[in-house]
Computed example of a mutant assay.
Amino acid sequence: MARKNKHKGGGNPNRPRFWGKHAVAAALDNPDRRVLKAWTTREAANFMQFPPDVMVTMAEVTDLARLVPHDAPHQGVVIEVEPLEDLWLGDVLADAPEKATLLVLDQVTDPHNVGAILRSAAAFGAIGIVTQDRHSPPEGGALAKAASGALERVPWVRVVNLARALEEIAEAGFWRIGLAGEADTDLKDALGPQRVALVLGAEGPGMRSNTREHCDALAKLPISDAVESLNVSNAAAISLYAASVA
């Protein structure tokens, strides 16, 4: 995976920095996450349980502000971590229960959107999300903060070829539904099979044509004419809810 570009104020993709109490607490609770360093105010330290092998530096709020991007809501605690190990799609599919929902994101690159989608995936019990490695954000502070701990809980699989991944998903018994505003079918009518993969494209261009061709059905959310479309993270949340109650 491409993790070479430096990110000002947020560490770098090889050693990203997370901030905010929920994101940090979840990282500390995740046995698969290696936390390298921590900076915290004394007040925030009372809420965190840092492992003895983590180097903790007490700092003032103004010092923490220099460790994160401008105006980032660090809530008095910042940590430096190693990215989680890569996951294999086959392993996630093999562990899927009889009724399962999987999210597939086609070139959704905004870290706030992906973080919010991870949070919704955790809320509605999705078994994971799948993205293309070249067209998805790396693990980072903004994404982890938006995910509010879900980055540590929801399996995130990055693949080289999304079309091939969709074929593998179909072979595992998933009904692949692509969300498209111009579709004739409402999502509630496209749902039915117990295993569903919801496929969402980037805002604006939507799904690429090759991704559409690897969906079993296209469906839309029945929104009013008052708005042209929904933010992709909102669309994901609504779709996940619909799948969870179908």
Results as ranks from 00 to 15, higher is better:
residue 176 R to P: 00
residue 93 L to F: 04
residue 165 A to S: 07
residue 53 D to V: 07
residue 198 L to T: 03
residue 61 V to K: 10
residue 144 A to L: 00
residue 40 T to I: 10
residue 234 N to C: 14
residue 76 G to P: 11
residue 148 S to M: 15
residue 52 P to C: 08
residue 238 I to H: 00
residue 109 T to L: 02
residue 67 L to V: 03
residue 4 K to N: 10
residue 129 I to A: 15
residue 69 P to I: 01
residue 105 L to M: 07
residue 120 S to H: 05
residue 178 G to S: 02
residue 148 S to R: 14
residue 178 G to F: 05
residue 39 W to C: 06
residue 12 N to Y: 14
residue 212 R to A: 02
residue 22 H to L: 14
residue 19 W to F: 13
residue 154 V to K: 00
residue 14 N to F: 04
residue 4 K to C: 10
residue 74 H to I: 01
residue 179 L to G: 12
residue 145 K to W: 08
residue 9 G to D: 12
residue 73 P to K: 08
residue 12 N to W: 14
residue 80 E to L: 01
residue 118 L to R: 05
residue 130 V to G: 12
residue 19 W to R: 02
residue 72 A to V: 01
residue 104 V to Y: 09
residue 70 H to M: 11
residue 86 D to G: 13
residue 50 F to P: 09
residue 245 V to F: 06
residue 132 Q to I: 01
residue 198 L to Y: 01
residue 21 K to F: 08
residue 223 I to R: 11
residue 49 Q to N: 15
residue 5 N to R: 06
residue 134 R to E: 14
residue 201 G to F: 09
residue 118 L to G: 13
residue 192 G to W: 04
residue 67 L to Q: 03
residue 64 L to R: 05
residue 226 A to M: 05
residue 38 A to I: 09
residue 240 L to H: 09
residue 218 L to G: 07
residue 243 A to K: 07
residue 8 K to Q: 09
residue 63 D to H: 13
residue 79 I to R: 00
residue 229 S to V: 13
residue 25 A to E: 14
residue 136 S to Q: 10
residue 90 G to Y: 10
residue 108 V to M: 04
residue 159 V to M: 03
residue 156 W to M: 03
residue 154 V to Q: 08
residue 181 G to K: 11
residue 215 C to D: 03
residue 49 Q to P: 01
residue 113 N to I: 06
residue 151 L to K: 01
residue 187 L to D: 09
residue 137 P to K: 00
residue 224 S to K: 09
residue 157 V to Q: 12
residue 192 G to F: 02
residue 166 L to E: 07
residue 2 A to L: 07
residue 184 D to L: 12
residue 194 Q to S: 09
residue 4 K to R: 10
residue 231 N to K: 02
residue 126 A to R: 14
residue 2 A to W: 15
residue 46 N to S: 15
residue 239 S to D: 11
residue 133 D to N: 12
residue 216 D to I: 00
residue 99 K to A: 13
residue 191 L to M: 12
residue 100 A to R: 08
residue 174 F to V: 09
residue 39 W to I: 11
residue 164 R to V: 09
residue 43 E to P: 00
residue 141 G to I: 00
residue 182 E to A: 13
residue 14 N to L: 14
residue 163 A to W: 02
residue 151 L to D: 15
residue 11 G to P: 11
residue 147 A to D: 05
residue 76 G to A: 01
residue 203 E to M: 11
residue 195 R to H: 02
residue 203 E to K: 04
residue 33 R to P: 07
residue 134 R to D: 08
residue 124 F to P: 06
residue 129 I to D: 15
residue 212 R to Y: 08
residue 133 D to Y: 10
